[in-house]
Design a protein around this nucleic acid. Structure first.
Length: 656
DNA sequence: CTCGTCACTTAGTATAGGACGG
DNA sequence: CCGTCCTATACTAAGTGACGAG
């Protein structure tokens, strides 16, 4: 018990640090927000007024704090014994809470919100927009029409041509039809949605052409909705909600070769929604004439509302924004776990290398799989239900058909070729030389197996994670991804950054370090549709700059010659001017060239995912502080909000 | 040990909206 | 000021991993 408490105490202290930096930051941003509101209210204010206002605000805050302090002191000094008792009880409850919060798995003590925003109801098509079956116009019942519009809106998409998509869609569509419709519409190929499709195209065109005022009105309405439904109170903070809108109905588009693509994603009603909030909060009201499925008060979870989705039968949640305390703390914890792995990774590596020699097959498989997870940053690879999802794999679910062994390939020995579809059906393709022992083990694992058999037939994620748990508290397969990503960034930054580079050059280095991680984690993207064009545009700009530069250089030369001839002050000044101009253009050119390199290298690589989910933000913050890079160059507004804790916490010497 | 459930993180893409250059 | 282009954001699918029942 003593030991336990000691550990907890240490944890608490660290948490205290986190909370402090986080709330401090929040105060800043809240204040900014308030100031902005005021700006909106009286936009005629002069800037000095605003400035004064800011000061006033700060003073007010200070005074309020002082008042609270005085109140507490007053209570303590008060002769009124009962107030004193009250005060002590309050403190006791607070302390008790602080302890409880971390030992019993509670996530909050007070939670109040307004519930979700539902998708707008279906608006029937104007009569002139017709659906045709077998060339004849046909008026559809509202439910059938709605589902038809989902298809019509996707008509330009490739997947409306796919067999599975069409089959699934048609089956679900027929369920929405009246019996007469059902008897008439028996063949999707005879359906003509083109008028509907044209109508929606025209609608979106019209939306683009809307006047400023109309756009402004929509914007204001969105803002109102955000203000009303987009925030909740969790404990003592107003927190931004991540997704407060319920997903609208539509046709399901799974990624990759998904067996359920085209199925109807049904409309979610209040009767489907479970609300989660605290008992003592003002409960959200369901829309008039409706009821929630349930209102519960479970403070062991972080979600505010949930519903069961009809495609996979999984649960969807409404949760807080990444900037919230609850998400930030968890994020921070994740990186702390990865840092603990750093301390013992050598031991673990030695261990799995040793296990390659084990007498037991299951241990060898475990060790080789772990080697892949560590070296190649593969995902764990949980089993999936066949026929329910696209056929994708991770490490533990690799099959024989996903690897090829080459005892010799070109000038390398023991090469393993990986070729499989991972998460989101993104292809992982890699040829990698491995140690002889690993290679021999793989040959052993492949013996007497069919292509569709599991490579690691004695292993799954649960076995692997149980083993990892024994090696380090809190260790799971995904910690390796976090650890290797973060350590790679740190090491690459060290390697690539030159302190006397210009800021754009340093940022290129940062992006390259980021890119190394994205490649490691296989974070790909489809090349943007306009990639070639935008590259060309940039190249044109570069050419233009180059011309400017040679012109400026010529002028400088001329000015110099002029100065040599006349030796007067005026010509000297002219030389200086021209010299500066050349310098400025050189800088601009450099910047453009850097931008072009960056963009080219980024064609098929997505940096965002690793930045947001794998890279300890304190590494980036420290790097910025060390090299005098403004943090805004690395993190945009949202990212700064998410990583507020790190921005406050890390100094220039932070080591992951 | 298997299976299903649940909660939460990680993922790529479509598009809204804002910056920027003519 | 307006159209173009790019970035940020919204959206939601698809993973991971814990846990409990049988």
């Amino acid at each position: 018990d003593k030991e336990h408490r000691h550990k907890d105490h240490k944890k608490d202290k660290e948490r205290e640090k986190f909370k402090h930096s986080n709330s401090e930051h929040k105060e800043h941003s809240e204040k900014k927000h308030r100031d902005k509101d005021k700006e909106r209210l009286k936009h005629s204010d002069s800037s000095s007024d605003k400035h004064r206002q800011k000061h006033k605000d700060r003073d007010k805050d200070k005074r309020r704090e002082e008042k609270v302090c005085l109140w507490v002191v007053g209570m303590l000094l008060n002769e009124n014994f009962f107030s004193l008792i009250g005060c002590v009880v309050l403190l006791f409850v607070m302390i008790r809470w602080e302890e409880e919060r971390y030992t019993d798995g509670s996530k909050w003590r007070f939670l109040e919100h307004k519930g979700p925003v539902f998708a707008p109801p279906y608006e029937p098509l104007p009569g002139k927009v017709k659906f045709y079956y077998g060339g004849k116009p046909m008026k559809l019942s509202a439910p059938a029409e709605e589902v038809a519009t989902f298809f019509a809106k996707m008509l330009d998409h490739e997947y409306t041509t796919k067999d599975i998509f069409r089959k699934n869609f048609f089956k679900d569509w027929r369920k929405e039809m009246t019996s007469e419709e059902k008897s008439v519409i028996t063949d999707l190929n005879k359906c003509d949605f083109s008028e509907m499709s044209e109508y929606f195209k025209a609608q979106s065109e019209a939306r683009k052409q809307m006047s400023k005022e109309e756009k402004q009105k929509i914007k204001e309405e969105n803002e109102r909705l955000l203000q009303e439904y987009g925030f909740c109170i969790m404990d003592n903070h107003k927190e931004r909600i991540g997704n407060f809108r319920i997903e609208p109905p539509g046709l399901f588009r799974g990624r990759g070769d998904h067996p359920k693509m085209g199925m109807l994603k049904r409309r979610i009603r209040p009767e489907d929604i479970i609300i989660n909030c605290s008992k003592d909060s003002k409960h959200p009201k369901p829309p008039p004439g409706t009821k929630w499925k349930e209102v519960r008060h479970d403070n062991k979870v972080t979600w505010l509302a949930s519903w069961t989705e009809n495609i996979q039968g999984s649960i969807k949640y409404i949760m807080l924004n990444p900037s919230s305390r609850i998400k930030g703390e968890k994020d921070w914890q994740k990186y702390e776990t990865a840092r603990r792995l750093k301390k013992c990774v050598d031991r673990i590596r030695a261990q799995y290398r040793e296990d390659w020699k084990s007498k037991e097959m299951r241990i060898r498989q475990r060790a080789v799989a772990l080697y892949f997870i560590d070296k190649l940053a593969l995902r764990a690879g949980n089993e999936k239900e066949e026929g329910e999802t696209a056929d994708t794999v991770g490490c533990c679910s690799l099959r024989v058909e996903h690897i090829k062994l080459y005892p010799k390939l070109d000038d390398q020995e023991y090469v393993v070729e990986f070729d499989f579809l991972g998460k989101d059906s993104i292809r992982y393709y890699n040829k990698i030389p491995v140690e002889k022992r690993v290679f021999k083990n793989l040959q052993l694992f492949l013996e007497n197996k069919q292509p569709e058999d599991d490579l690691f037939d004695r292993l799954n994620t649960s076995i692997l994670n149980k083993h990892l748990q024994e090696l380090m508290d809190g260790l799971t397969a995904k910690v390796f991804r976090t650890y290797n990503a973060s350590i790679t960034l740190q090491q690459q930054l060290k390697e690539l950054t030159c302190s006397d580079d210009s800021i754009p050059a340093k940022i290129l280095s940062y992006n390259r370090a980021n890119r190394a991680v994205a490649i490691l984690c296989n974070h790909q993207r489809a090349p943007p549709k306009t990639f070639e064009k935008s590259m060309q545009n940039l190249q044109n700009k570069i050419d233009e700059k180059q011309n400017q530069l040679s012109a400026a250089r010529k002028q400088l030369k001329a000015a110099k010659a002029d100065h040599k001839a006349s030796h007067d002050d005026k010509s000297k000044k002219a030389v200086e001017m021209k010299r500066k101009a050349v310098q400025r253009i050189e800088e601009q050119l450099m910047k453009l060239q850097v931008q072009a390199t960056d963009r080219e290298e980024n064609k098929q690589i997505a940096l965002g995912t690793s930045k947001l989910n794998y890279l300890d933000p304190r590494i980036s913050v420290a790097w910025c502080k060390k090299f005098g890079i403004p943090i805004e160059k690395i993190y945009n507004k949202t990212q700064r909000e998410k990583f507020a804790w790190a921005i406050d916490m890390a100094d220039k010497d932070y080591e992951f």
